[in-house]
Amino acid sequence: MKIFKNKTFISVLYLILAFSLGFCIFACSVFSTLRFTLFNSGFLSDTLNQTDYYTDLCDEITDSLMDIGDASGLDKSFFEDFVDEVLVRKDVQSYVDAFYSGSKLEVDSSNFEDALRTALEQYEDENGLDESDFSEENVDYFVEEASKIYVQNVEINYFPMIQKTVMKYTSKLNVYITVTAIITLAILLILIFTNKWKHIAVRYIYYGTASAGLFMLIIPTAVFLSGVINKITILTRSLNDMYTACIQSVFMVILIVAVVLIVISAMLWILHNILRKRVSN
């Protein structure tokens, strides 16, 4: 096997291995980032808590309820302090949990409806309204419509449509992460154990790590510098806050991983020089 003694051929072979190592590190890092961010219920819940999502959502529900109140003979003040943030938080959290656990996505609006009926009865008493001032049927319809508004706002629309895909890829991502991690490890072992001189092995590992780090750096840098996140057009403040925060966090994680990879590669460079000096000596 004369070819394996050819120095150029061996170098090319190792460069290909280093490239594969870089690509696997990159893929493994991206899959892991996705798995622990977008495909993780804790990440979404934390984002909702960190942004003003609940406060904005309560305001939006209140505004919509006031609109329907304007067509239903109710004073604006009726809905002013009606929406209960604690209930909204509980219902949104249940919805997010159901989304990530693969359960049926539905909002239980019974607590909201009960509170609304109680408030309506109180309103009738306070304003001296009797049965001649309303029909039960129309009040029921009002409660039904108000409840729809509540449910539509609590639901994160289109989540039902992507739920199956998220479930499917959550398990697939675990496999992808494992496979890329195993390949990465295998290439590392090949590089280490097939090189007599360890500084050469370290150099090829450096190539892989540094190229993966640089590649990962490109994406978030391009996104942050282009300001594309601030250009996203989402028409409700609550969702806008949530999605921009989610996207920012994901790219920030990618950026951090990229920086870590670059720091590791810098350390490998130093290690390479130390090992090389030892060999020279």
Binding site: G22, F23, A210, A212, S265
Partner: peptide, 16 residues
Amino acid sequence: KFIIVPIVMCIVMCIF
């Protein structure tokens, strides 16, 4: 070597 090779690899990764 330590600067150019990773950059070239990164570019190849991008293209790929």
